[in-house]
Amino acid sequence: MSVLVGKQAPEFKASAVVNGNEIVEGFSLDQYKGKKYVVFFFYPADFTFVCPTEIIAFQERIADFESRNVAVVGASTDSANAHWKWLQTEQNEGGIKGVRYPLVADQSLMISTAYDVLAGNFDYNDEGNDVFNGTPQAYRGLFLIDKDGIVRHQVVNDMPLGRSVDETLRLIDALQFTEENGEVCPANWKKGDKALKATQEGISDYLSHKH
């Protein structure tokens, strides 16, 4: 798997559904550069089982992301029309109606490939024709991108394993704390906890207070 941490997030332009009901062309994360942090996450497919629990969970906490100046953007290999239909379907009928953040359509599989979360790969058959081996869906990848467009955190789960919104918010808090204060965040750090200076004296001071 590619490690994108410390690198510019791969750029793309694609169709997306925004505000829960509007299909737009040429959607790009570039619109957030210099303005917002981005949580960009992939999920396997529309109209499935684990996926709506994650997508709705992010929406339910959207105010927490917005208060941290973070844009949330989802993506799968479904079409924009499939996204739109799912967004119009009531939640008690298996839909995600009420979700307002953008959902990107990666039908070409190129975005999932660029972020190296595609569950399969392109190859050639004996006749020299393009074929796809595996499942043309994305694993549950999540990327925290800073305001300069640099990936600062990534995690990739297999398809049955849902992600934690609380952990995502914790990592955003840690990143923003280190940017603002110059200190580093130890294991299990959460907002309001003591951090430490990246020196031996700083570590000793932190451990002495912890114990």
Rank of each mutant, 00 (worst) to 15 (best):
M1H: 05
L4T: 13
G6V: 14
K7I: 14
A9T: 09
E11C: 01
E11D: 13
E11S: 14
F12G: 13
S15M: 12
S15P: 01
A16M: 03
A16N: 01
N21D: 14
E22N: 09
I23C: 01
F27V: 03
F27P: 02
Y32M: 09
G34R: 12
K36Y: 09
Y37Q: 11
V39R: 02
F42S: 07
Y43P: 12
P44Q: 09
P44W: 08
D46E: 05
D46H: 06
F47M: 10
T48L: 03
T48R: 00
F49D: 08
F49I: 13
C51I: 11
T53Y: 03
I56M: 03
I56R: 04
A57I: 02
F58H: 14
R61A: 13
D64F: 09
D64M: 14
F65V: 09
E66P: 05
S67V: 12
S67M: 07
R68P: 06
R68I: 13
N69P: 08
G74I: 03
A80S: 07
A80D: 06
N81V: 10
H83L: 01
K85V: 13
K85A: 14
K85L: 08
W86I: 08
W86Y: 01
W86P: 04
T89Q: 12
Q91Y: 02
E93Q: 15
K97D: 04
V104F: 02
V104E: 00
V104N: 00
L109D: 06
L109K: 08
I111Y: 02
A114W: 00
A114R: 00
D116G: 08
D116Y: 03
L118W: 01
G120L: 05
G120Q: 01
E127C: 03
N129P: 01
F132L: 04
T135P: 04
A138E: 02
A138I: 07
G141E: 02
F143M: 12
D148R: 13
D148E: 14
R152W: 04
H153S: 15
V156Q: 02
M159G: 04
G162H: 02
E167V: 14
L175I: 15
E180A: 15
G182L: 13
E183H: 14
V184D: 11
V184P: 10
V184A: 13
P186R: 10
D193W: 07
D193T: 15
A195Q: 05
I203V: 15
S208G: 15
H209I: 12
